[in-house]
Amino acid sequence: MTISIKEVEHVAVLARLQLKENEKEKYARHMGSVLQYVDKLNQLDTEGVEPLDHILPVFNVFREDQVKPASNREEILANAPLVEAGQYKVPKII
């Protein structure tokens, strides 16, 4: 399994990771070698095998519809890089 620079770039956009040119090649190589390794799974016939998405035989875990006090706003904003008017401030969207 090899992976192209173009695919690396596409995945990096999806993952919101800015890659430098030299990194792209490194990722292509590393991802390629891991993907080649995981191709081993294709040796197995999994026809009819139910995917295991939850290991515990547990269902319907609920909480009551009860309101508890919210966090203190100062506390919740304390770790924010930039705050204005009690809100997180972010650069322009477009």
Binding site: L41, N42, V49, E50, P51, L52
Partner: peptide, 10 residues
Amino acid sequence: KALKVRRLIK
């Protein structure tokens, strides 16, 4: 595929 193999391992 991995989730299916995960079941086989279990």
